[in-house]
Simulated scan of single mutants.
Amino acid sequence: MEKFPMIETERLILSQLEEKDIPFITEYLQHRIYSDLTSNIPYPYTENDAVFWLKISKEAFENNTGYTFGIRNKEGRIIGAIGLHDRDDDKAELGYWIGMSYWNKGFVTEAAKAIIDFGFNELGFNKIFATHLLHNPASGRIMEKIGMKQEAVLKEEVKKDGEYFDLVMYSIFKDRDSF
């Protein structure tokens, strides 16, 4: 794909991350809870972290290995992000976060449904999977709402701040009946 896609849902616009998003991303991810509930968001989260993340997101798109979308309200303000990253063998990994003031409003579920459809219909993946830390069951509920089923618990899969954590893995398949 030469041009980064834009996907519109009932309440959201999913589009490429932009430099103007950096202050908002930095502000949202300042809260320690994001680091505590995810395997790859550092604490403290700095502007340099956001700049680096935008850079690697752009490179992933250019290398055809990933799509990281800003989750935006209809006014165009970023409220979170969602990504789909190629993991070879026709499968991709889904990841997401959303600003705390937007939690429990169905925005991630809405965005994830659109990204799953994009991954199967536009990118041709056979399997899309996502993981969450065992102590973040809310993320697992999102995965279930979009049709994913729990596939495995990966014991001590992540080492963060010198401690090992289990990851719960969910999957969905293109034919959606493979499980």
Rank of each mutant, 00 (worst) to 15 (best):
S15Q: 13
A50M: 04
E144G: 11
P137V: 10
K91H: 09
K3W: 03
T46W: 04
D175T: 11
F179D: 06
Q16T: 07
K113G: 01
S101L: 07
L123W: 06
D88H: 12
E47W: 01
M143Q: 15
R72K: 14
M1T: 13
L54I: 09
E47R: 13
Y45N: 08
K55I: 02
N126R: 10
N64T: 08
H132C: 15
N48T: 04
N126T: 06
F118Q: 08
S39E: 12
E2T: 12
M100I: 14
I79H: 03
K149R: 13
L37V: 07
K127V: 02
V108W: 03
V168K: 10
E151F: 06
F179T: 08
E47T: 09
N126I: 02
I79P: 00
G147I: 08
G106R: 06
K3M: 11
I25C: 07
L84T: 05
K20V: 14
H132G: 08
S15W: 02
I41V: 15
K74G: 06
A130T: 07
E75Q: 14
Q150H: 11
F179W: 15
A81Y: 04
H85W: 12
Y28T: 08
S35L: 01
H31Y: 10
D166S: 14
V158A: 03
G147F: 05
K20T: 14
N48D: 13
L133D: 06
G95F: 09
D88Q: 11
I115Q: 01
E163F: 02
A112Y: 05
Y34K: 03
L17P: 01
G70D: 05
K58H: 12
E8Q: 15
L54Q: 00
Y45A: 06
L37G: 07
V108N: 05
P137Q: 11
N40V: 13
Y102S: 08
K58P: 05
T109E: 04
I172C: 00
D177R: 14
F120H: 02
D166K: 11
G66E: 08
S35K: 05
G83H: 05
G106M: 07
E93I: 06
L133E: 07
L29T: 05
I22L: 14
W53F: 15
L94W: 06
E144Y: 03
K58S: 12
I146L: 00
A111L: 07
E156D: 15
N121H: 12
T65I: 10
P137L: 12
K58E: 12
R72N: 02
G83M: 10
A81E: 10
I115G: 00
R11F: 11
G66D: 00
G70V: 12
R87K: 15
G162P: 05
K74N: 03
L29G: 04
S139M: 02
E93K: 09
W97F: 05
M1R: 15
A60E: 10
G76D: 08
